[in-house]
Simulated scan of single mutants.
Amino acid sequence: MRKLARTIHFDESDRNVFARPAASDEWALSGGFEFSNWTSGELTGKARQAFANGWLGLESFGRATFVAVAKIEQEELDALTESLAAHFETYYGAPGREAALAAAREEIGFMEELCEDQEPNTLLIVERELTDAGVREKFRAIRPQDADITQVAVHGAGE
């Protein structure tokens, strides 16, 4: 069984914190490549939030705070690879289709590795920091049976 992750929203906060929020249920990647040439001067406002903990949705190329592990079919993976390769050519200047496809396969493969040992519906969280060596990513998983609403939401006192 192949697995990847889909964006998930528990509330409307992503619409407020990201310049381009991903829609719910998009296939997603870490998307750390977007920040590979960034400097600390670029880490302000909504861009900082996207850098700090945003997953990259593969339809909108927007960001989401949470993703959930899900099964994926080979046909879907193939389509995502093609779409991501086209994105690399259009927005990142990949030197050709083969180079773009190789980069897309690598990014999707990395996400598959993150998901392969996780149960479906496991929540994944990414945290990034900019170091002298570049972008460092850390990942955390919250298994479905360990999830507690207080880990992802804040509730006020009811009336």
Rank of each mutant, 00 (worst) to 15 (best):
E107R: 03
E159K: 13
N16M: 14
A47T: 11
E98P: 05
C115K: 02
S13V: 15
E76L: 01
V67Q: 03
E42C: 07
I149F: 09
T90Q: 12
H9P: 01
E106L: 11
R140K: 10
D146P: 06
E12G: 12
S83Q: 09
E129L: 12
Q74K: 04
N121W: 15
F18N: 01
Q74D: 13
F66A: 10
R143A: 13
A50T: 09
V152Y: 12
G31K: 06
F139S: 04
Q118C: 13
E34T: 11
L84K: 01
E12D: 14
A157M: 15
A79G: 02
A68R: 06
I125H: 06
T81L: 02
G57T: 03
D14G: 03
E107N: 07
N121P: 11
G93L: 06
A52G: 10
Q118R: 14
S36M: 13
Q145W: 05
I125N: 03
A19Q: 15
L29E: 00
P95S: 11
A133Y: 06
G156Q: 15
D25I: 06
Q49G: 03
A23L: 13
A19I: 14
F66I: 11
F33T: 06
A23I: 08
I108W: 13
E82Q: 14
T81H: 00
W38D: 05
A50V: 09
Q49N: 13
I142Q: 03
Q74Y: 00
L58G: 00
R15N: 07
P120F: 12
G156R: 15
S83C: 08
E42L: 10
A22S: 06
D148Y: 06
E59D: 13
N37D: 10
F33W: 09
E98A: 08
E59N: 04
L4N: 06
K3W: 08
G134K: 08
V67W: 05
E82T: 07
R15F: 11
D78G: 07
E12Y: 13
T90G: 02
I8W: 09
T150M: 09
G158R: 13
E34C: 08
E34I: 14
F10T: 08
A102V: 05
Q49P: 02
W55C: 00
L58E: 03
L56Q: 03
A99H: 04
K3S: 10
G45W: 10
K71V: 13
E127D: 04
G156T: 14
N37F: 06
S13E: 13
A28S: 00
Q145T: 06
L4F: 04
A147K: 01
A68E: 09
M1R: 01
D117I: 12
K71R: 06
G54M: 04
E59K: 06
L130V: 03
P144H: 03
V17G: 01
I108E: 04
S13M: 14
K138S: 12
V17K: 04
E112C: 09
A153G: 12
G57V: 03
S24F: 07
E12T: 11
